[in-house]
């Protein structure tokens, strides 16, 4: 027959449980403070008050269209944010136009630096909207000088191009100049279009696909 725990043992059990909870709380508080400090000191740390996923600012005297459900097409999502999209044929046309050579048509790659260096549309500017401080000084004047700014990311349902376009619009680039190439680098590359690697105008290209 199993002996029943005595009153002292019950009391001890309660004490141990209390101690365990206090220890867990101490770990949580200390860990939380450590995490805040580490994030603050880390060069890759997150700015706590910044909105990394901006929504379209409401324009004055304009009825805001209802937000489409998240499973709607990327085009519909971007149109709801007040952004225009471009199909591949138009993008290819802009790439071949004289405006491209004169920097009146520019491309903005909204992916991160690593992805940009692995391959981008030739001459595209790198603009990671999560880290705007690294490139805004170069991209912003180029956007102001251009008449067409084509922003792209990986393609499909990637959201970076939309966020980057909104960030540029927020910085002062006229919204009507901004266009999103929804197919992105994936479609561009799949169509056998030229892809530049490394820095902008590096002159290095990925070998063309057969």
């Amino acid at each position: 027959m199993t002996p029943q725990p005595t009153q002292t043992e019950h009391g001890f059990r309660g004490f141990q449980l209390k101690r365990l909870i206090i220890e867990a709380l101490a770990v949580t508080v200390t860990g939380g403070l450590f995490a805040l400090l580490a994030n603050r000191l880390s060069p890759a740390g997150i700015e706590l008050t910044r909105d990394y996923f901006p929504k379209a600012p409401p324009a004055t005297n304009q009825i805001i269209p209802p937000q489409p459900p998240p499973w709607d097409s990327p085009e519909a999502q971007l149109h709801a944010k007040g952004l225009n999209t471009l199909p591949m044929e138009t993008v290819v046309g802009l790439f071949a136009s004289p405006g491209y050579a004169a920097d009146k048509v520019i491309f903005v790659d909204a992916r991160n630096d690593e992805q940009y260096r692995a391959g981008h549309i030739p001459g595209a500017f790198a603009f990671d909207h999560y880290r705007p401080e690294t490139s805004i000084a170069v991209v912003f004047p180029a956007c102001l000088a251009a008449s067409n700014v084509v922003v792209y990311c990986t393609g499909g349902d990637c959201e970076e191009s939309g966020f980057a376009a909104l960030a540029l619009a927020d910085a002062g680039v006229p919204r009507e100049r901004l266009r999103i190439y929804v197919g992105g680098i994936t479609e561009w590359q799949a169509a056998g279009r030229p892809v530049e690697t490394g820095d902008r105008r590096s002159g290095q290209f990925l070998p063309a696909k057969p």
Partner: peptide, 18 residues
Amino acid sequence: ALPLNLIAACLPWFEAFC
């Protein structure tokens, strides 16, 4: 933004700490 950023900023370091 703030609660989302807090989770993303703190959770990884908290896991590492634990």
